[in-house]
Design a protein around this nucleic acid. Structure first.
Lengths: 133, 133
DNA sequence: CTTGACCTTCCAGTAACTGGAAACACTAGA
DNA sequence: TCTAGTGTTTCCAGTTACTGGAAGGTCAAG
């Protein structure tokens, strides 16, 4: 399989597949006589794994770790669970921040008249308690 | 005010204050005879404005835009509202994604036994429908 | 044989800083 | 006055995870 075929099969851009190969996240593929990268099904599976793990918020380094666990005959699900739980906690924290940000901004947008007059609660709230910028 | 004083007053790292000055997000400060940056209260106000806008999810370029609107005598709150509303929409979208991600991952973590056995729903769900990696 | 799609490498850029090195400046204590 | 310690300067490099583009080689169809 050439790179574009494997990229499509894995649901990733060609550039990204090349990048993952370059950084050794997936093994370096074989090469055709012309130097084209040649991937097999195992590469597709690994790339799918990586894509989905990335969608789950795992960093590339964590993907590397997960791939390692996955391939390790002695992998323990405890290791995977620990990593996933840590990630989950971070996601929850991000959610809380995003929620408060959303609420506050929504409140401000609502309070903003949106006409041509210079009064604007958004700007006021960003720059206040100094009596103007 | 030296840079560390203004940084503390604005609630930003020194490096970041220097960076904001370098990229012209806030005006280049005056210099002491020794070449030290010398900030005034107006700089502190602008840095506070930027810090808070950044916390609201505005990009540095949007901060630049907002600062411009803020300082423009003819600024209209409609412009600010438009920018904030756009941002708000993006935040809501991010929230939805984060929510589904959170739910799915939480489900998997819960289903994962977390013992030393190699079965792990997390890994299965990331790499499945290929019969193993 | 040409055209167009596909592939290669390499370099640069993104966003928003952050870290570190080398060197100069200022201040407080002995 | 010397010295130690901290603050400041500039500049360069690195971070994350790609993405875009240039210059050029390859392949398959018509």
């Amino acid at each position: 399989m050439n790179i574009s075929a494997v990229a499509e099969a894995a649901g990733l851009p060609v550039k990204t597949v090349r990048y993952y190969s370059d950084i050794g996240l997936v093994p370096a593929p074989g090469r055709s006589s012309a130097g084209y990268r040649s991937y097999d099904d195992s590469a597709v599976r690994k790339l799918v794994f990586v894509r989905r793990a990335r969608e789950f918020g795992f960093s590339v380094e964590e993907c590397r770790e997960l791939l390692g666990l996955y391939e390790d005959r002695h992998r323990s699900s405890a290791d995977v669970k620990r990593i996933a739980a840590k990630r989950l906690e971070e996601i929850a924290e991000k959610q809380r921040e995003l929620q408060s940000l959303h609420d506050e901004l929504a409140h401000l947008v609502e309070a903003c008249r949106g006409d041509d007059r210079p009064d604007c609660p958004i700007i006021d709230s960003l720059g206040n308690r100094y009596g103007g910028l």
